[in-house]
Amino acid sequence: MKVAFLGASKGMGRALARRMAARGDELCLLGRDLEDQRRTALDLSARAGSSREIPVHHCDLEQPEGFAQALKHCEESLAGLDCVVVTAGVYDAQENLEADTDWARRLMTINFSNTVAFCEEARKRLLARGGGTLCVFSSVAGERGRKPVVIYGASKAGLSAYLEGLDHKFRAAGLRTVCIKPGFVKTGMTAGLKPPPFAGEPDQVAGVVLRAIDKGTPVAYAPGIWALVMLAIRSLPRFVMRKIGF
Protein backbone atom coordinates (compact mmCIF):
# COMPACT_ATOMS: atom_id res chain seq x y z
CA MET A 1 0.00 0.00 0.00
CA LYS A 2 1.29 3.47 -0.88
CA VAL A 3 0.55 5.92 1.89
CA ALA A 4 0.83 9.69 2.26
CA PHE A 5 1.13 10.27 6.00
CA LEU A 6 0.58 13.63 7.70
CA GLY A 7 1.73 13.42 11.31
CA ALA A 8 3.91 10.30 11.54
CA SER A 9 6.51 11.74 13.87
CA LYS A 10 4.62 11.73 17.17
CA GLY A 11 2.33 9.69 19.36
CA MET A 12 -0.30 7.53 17.67
CA GLY A 13 0.90 8.56 14.22
CA ARG A 14 4.40 7.32 15.03
CA ALA A 15 3.07 3.98 16.25
CA LEU A 16 0.83 3.56 13.20
CA ALA A 17 3.60 4.48 10.76
CA ARG A 18 5.90 1.92 12.44
CA ARG A 19 3.33 -0.82 11.98
CA MET A 20 2.76 0.16 8.37
CA ALA A 21 6.47 0.29 7.56
CA ALA A 22 7.06 -3.02 9.33
CA ARG A 23 4.55 -4.83 7.12
CA GLY A 24 6.00 -3.34 3.96
CA ASP A 25 3.71 -0.41 3.19
CA GLU A 26 5.46 2.37 1.27
CA LEU A 27 5.22 5.65 3.12
CA CYS A 28 5.75 9.29 2.23
CA LEU A 29 5.91 11.53 5.28
CA LEU A 30 4.41 15.00 5.47
CA GLY A 31 5.01 17.43 8.29
CA ARG A 32 5.96 20.88 9.45
CA ASP A 33 9.52 20.20 10.56
CA LEU A 34 11.44 18.53 7.74
CA GLU A 35 14.39 17.54 9.91
CA ASP A 36 12.00 15.84 12.30
CA GLN A 37 10.36 14.00 9.39
CA ARG A 38 13.77 12.84 8.21
CA ARG A 39 14.58 11.39 11.62
CA THR A 40 11.23 9.63 11.65
CA ALA A 41 11.94 8.26 8.17
CA LEU A 42 15.28 6.86 9.39
CA ASP A 43 13.54 5.21 12.33
CA LEU A 44 10.89 3.61 10.14
CA SER A 45 13.48 2.22 7.71
CA ALA A 46 15.73 0.91 10.48
CA ARG A 47 12.85 -0.81 12.27
CA ALA A 48 11.50 -2.33 9.08
CA GLY A 49 15.00 -3.49 8.16
CA SER A 50 14.51 -1.93 4.76
CA SER A 51 17.04 -0.03 2.70
CA ARG A 52 14.34 1.81 0.78
CA GLU A 53 14.50 5.51 1.50
CA ILE A 54 11.28 7.02 2.81
CA PRO A 55 10.54 10.36 1.12
CA VAL A 56 9.57 13.40 3.19
CA HIS A 57 7.90 16.64 2.16
CA HIS A 58 6.97 19.83 3.89
CA CYS A 59 3.34 20.29 4.84
CA ASP A 60 1.98 22.58 7.54
CA LEU A 61 -1.68 22.45 8.59
CA GLU A 62 -1.49 26.21 9.05
CA GLN A 63 -0.47 26.72 5.42
CA PRO A 64 -3.35 25.36 3.33
CA GLU A 65 -1.88 26.74 0.11
CA GLY A 66 0.75 24.00 0.29
CA PHE A 67 -1.64 21.03 0.64
CA ALA A 68 -2.14 20.23 -3.04
CA GLN A 69 1.56 20.44 -3.76
CA ALA A 70 2.48 18.23 -0.79
CA LEU A 71 0.10 15.49 -1.87
CA LYS A 72 1.30 15.75 -5.46
CA HIS A 73 4.86 15.27 -4.20
CA CYS A 74 3.79 12.15 -2.32
CA GLU A 75 2.04 10.64 -5.31
CA GLU A 76 5.09 11.30 -7.47
CA SER A 77 7.63 10.03 -4.92
CA LEU A 78 5.67 6.84 -4.38
CA ALA A 79 4.66 6.45 -8.03
CA GLY A 80 1.10 5.99 -6.88
CA LEU A 81 -1.18 6.59 -3.91
CA ASP A 82 -3.59 4.21 -2.17
CA CYS A 83 -4.10 5.78 1.20
CA VAL A 84 -3.85 9.15 2.92
CA VAL A 85 -3.50 9.24 6.72
CA VAL A 86 -4.01 12.38 8.80
CA THR A 87 -3.14 12.18 12.49
CA ALA A 88 -1.93 15.75 12.86
CA GLY A 89 -3.86 18.15 15.03
CA VAL A 90 -3.47 20.22 18.17
CA TYR A 91 -4.84 19.98 21.66
CA ASP A 92 -4.90 22.24 24.67
CA ALA A 93 -6.78 22.29 27.93
CA GLN A 94 -10.12 24.13 27.92
CA GLU A 95 -8.96 26.78 30.41
CA ASN A 96 -6.01 27.74 28.20
CA LEU A 97 -8.28 28.03 25.17
CA GLU A 98 -10.80 30.10 27.13
CA ALA A 99 -8.04 32.45 28.23
CA ASP A 100 -6.78 33.05 24.71
CA THR A 101 -9.38 33.44 21.98
CA ASP A 102 -6.76 33.80 19.25
CA TRP A 103 -5.28 30.48 20.23
CA ALA A 104 -8.77 28.93 20.32
CA ARG A 105 -9.47 30.21 16.81
CA ARG A 106 -6.14 28.87 15.61
CA LEU A 107 -6.85 25.46 17.11
CA MET A 108 -10.24 25.32 15.41
CA THR A 109 -8.67 26.36 12.11
CA ILE A 110 -6.01 23.66 12.33
CA ASN A 111 -8.22 20.85 13.59
CA PHE A 112 -11.28 21.65 11.50
CA SER A 113 -11.09 24.10 8.58
CA ASN A 114 -7.61 23.27 7.43
CA THR A 115 -7.86 19.56 8.08
CA VAL A 116 -11.03 19.55 5.97
CA ALA A 117 -9.20 21.49 3.27
CA PHE A 118 -6.39 18.94 3.32
CA CYS A 119 -8.90 16.09 3.12
CA GLU A 120 -10.56 17.77 0.13
CA GLU A 121 -7.25 17.74 -1.74
CA ALA A 122 -6.68 14.12 -0.70
CA ARG A 123 -10.22 13.16 -1.78
CA LYS A 124 -9.74 14.68 -5.24
CA ARG A 125 -6.41 13.01 -5.72
CA LEU A 126 -7.60 9.58 -4.58
CA LEU A 127 -10.81 9.75 -6.63
CA ALA A 128 -8.82 10.79 -9.69
CA ARG A 129 -6.92 7.52 -9.28
CA GLY A 130 -10.13 5.55 -9.05
CA GLY A 131 -10.38 5.51 -5.28
CA GLY A 132 -8.46 4.76 -2.12
CA THR A 133 -8.60 5.14 1.64
CA LEU A 134 -8.68 8.39 3.57
CA CYS A 135 -8.00 7.76 7.26
CA VAL A 136 -8.36 10.74 9.57
CA PHE A 137 -7.94 10.97 13.35
CA SER A 138 -10.86 12.75 14.95
CA SER A 139 -11.59 12.18 18.65
CA VAL A 140 -14.16 10.88 21.12
CA ALA A 141 -14.12 14.49 22.33
CA GLY A 142 -16.34 15.30 19.35
CA GLU A 143 -19.13 12.94 20.44
CA ARG A 144 -20.80 15.18 22.99
CA GLY A 145 -20.38 18.78 24.16
CA ARG A 146 -18.47 18.38 27.41
CA LYS A 147 -17.06 20.78 29.97
CA PRO A 148 -13.34 19.92 29.73
CA VAL A 149 -13.28 19.92 25.91
CA VAL A 150 -15.79 22.58 24.82
CA ILE A 151 -13.62 24.06 22.08
CA TYR A 152 -11.34 21.16 21.19
CA GLY A 153 -14.38 18.87 21.16
CA ALA A 154 -16.27 21.23 18.85
CA SER A 155 -13.38 21.22 16.37
CA LYS A 156 -13.39 17.41 16.38
CA ALA A 157 -17.21 17.21 16.20
CA GLY A 158 -17.09 19.27 13.02
CA LEU A 159 -14.37 17.05 11.61
CA SER A 160 -16.30 13.86 12.43
CA ALA A 161 -19.45 15.25 10.76
CA TYR A 162 -17.47 16.14 7.64
CA LEU A 163 -15.91 12.67 7.50
CA GLU A 164 -19.29 11.00 7.85
CA GLY A 165 -20.71 13.08 5.01
CA LEU A 166 -17.68 12.29 2.86
CA ASP A 167 -18.15 8.60 3.49
CA HIS A 168 -21.83 8.70 2.50
CA LYS A 169 -21.24 10.72 -0.63
CA PHE A 170 -18.12 9.11 -2.10
CA ARG A 171 -17.92 5.51 -0.91
CA ALA A 172 -19.71 4.28 -4.04
CA ALA A 173 -17.14 6.09 -6.15
CA GLY A 174 -14.33 4.21 -4.41
CA LEU A 175 -13.30 6.54 -1.60
CA ARG A 176 -13.22 4.71 1.71
CA THR A 177 -13.32 7.21 4.54
CA VAL A 178 -12.11 5.93 7.89
CA CYS A 179 -12.75 8.16 10.89
CA ILE A 180 -10.70 7.18 13.93
CA LYS A 181 -11.98 8.23 17.33
CA PRO A 182 -9.26 7.65 19.88
CA GLY A 183 -10.21 7.74 23.53
CA PHE A 184 -7.63 8.75 26.07
CA VAL A 185 -4.27 7.56 24.79
CA LYS A 186 -0.99 7.99 26.63
CA THR A 187 1.08 10.19 24.33
CA GLY A 188 3.07 13.40 24.54
CA MET A 189 -0.20 15.26 23.87
CA THR A 190 -1.83 13.91 27.02
CA ALA A 191 1.31 13.89 29.19
CA GLY A 192 0.61 15.54 32.51
CA LEU A 193 -3.10 14.64 32.41
CA LYS A 194 -4.24 11.98 34.80
CA PRO A 195 -5.07 8.90 32.71
CA PRO A 196 -8.71 7.82 33.16
CA PRO A 197 -9.76 4.17 33.21
CA PHE A 198 -9.37 2.51 29.81
CA ALA A 199 -6.47 4.77 28.81
CA GLY A 200 -4.76 3.23 25.79
CA GLU A 201 -1.23 2.87 24.49
CA PRO A 202 -0.31 4.28 21.06
CA ASP A 203 0.66 0.88 19.67
CA GLN A 204 -2.64 -0.62 20.76
CA VAL A 205 -4.45 2.17 18.91
CA ALA A 206 -2.24 1.62 15.86
CA GLY A 207 -3.38 -2.00 15.71
CA VAL A 208 -7.04 -0.95 15.73
CA VAL A 209 -6.43 1.71 13.09
CA LEU A 210 -4.59 -0.63 10.76
CA ARG A 211 -7.45 -3.12 10.87
CA ALA A 212 -9.95 -0.32 10.21
CA ILE A 213 -7.93 0.88 7.21
CA ASP A 214 -7.65 -2.64 5.79
CA LYS A 215 -11.37 -3.27 6.17
CA GLY A 216 -12.52 0.23 5.29
CA THR A 217 -14.41 0.64 8.58
CA PRO A 218 -16.14 4.05 8.46
CA VAL A 219 -15.79 4.76 12.21
CA ALA A 220 -13.39 3.06 14.60
CA TYR A 221 -12.99 3.73 18.30
CA ALA A 222 -9.54 3.06 19.65
CA PRO A 223 -8.94 1.28 21.95
CA GLY A 224 -12.17 -0.58 21.16
CA ILE A 225 -13.59 -0.28 24.68
CA TRP A 226 -14.19 3.44 24.01
CA ALA A 227 -17.09 2.50 21.72
CA LEU A 228 -18.93 1.33 24.84
CA VAL A 229 -17.78 4.25 26.97
CA MET A 230 -19.04 6.73 24.38
CA LEU A 231 -22.28 4.84 23.90
CA ALA A 232 -22.91 5.41 27.58
CA ILE A 233 -21.89 9.06 27.44
CA ARG A 234 -24.01 9.74 24.35
CA SER A 235 -27.06 8.32 26.10
CA LEU A 236 -26.72 10.47 29.21
CA PRO A 237 -29.52 13.04 29.47
CA ARG A 238 -28.50 16.68 29.19
CA PHE A 239 -29.32 17.46 32.84
CA VAL A 240 -26.89 14.75 33.91
CA MET A 241 -24.15 16.03 31.59
CA ARG A 242 -24.61 19.48 33.10
CA LYS A 243 -24.05 18.14 36.59
CA ILE A 244 -20.96 16.01 35.98
CA GLY A 245 -17.42 17.21 35.46
CA PHE A 246 -16.38 15.38 32.32
Binding site: L42, D43, A46, G49, G188
Partner: peptide
Amino acid sequence: ILADRILAFDE
Protein backbone atom coordinates in the same frame (compact mmCIF):
# COMPACT_ATOMS: atom_id res chain seq x y z
CA ILE B 1 10.77 7.65 26.91
CA LEU B 2 8.84 9.27 24.06
CA ALA B 3 12.13 9.92 22.24
CA ASP B 4 12.61 6.39 20.96
CA ARG B 5 13.62 6.68 17.32
CA ILE B 6 16.35 4.55 15.81
CA LEU B 7 18.46 6.88 13.69
CA ALA B 8 20.78 4.37 12.06
CA PHE B 9 21.55 0.70 12.02
CA ASP B 10 24.36 -0.72 9.92
CA GLU B 11 23.63 -4.37 9.07
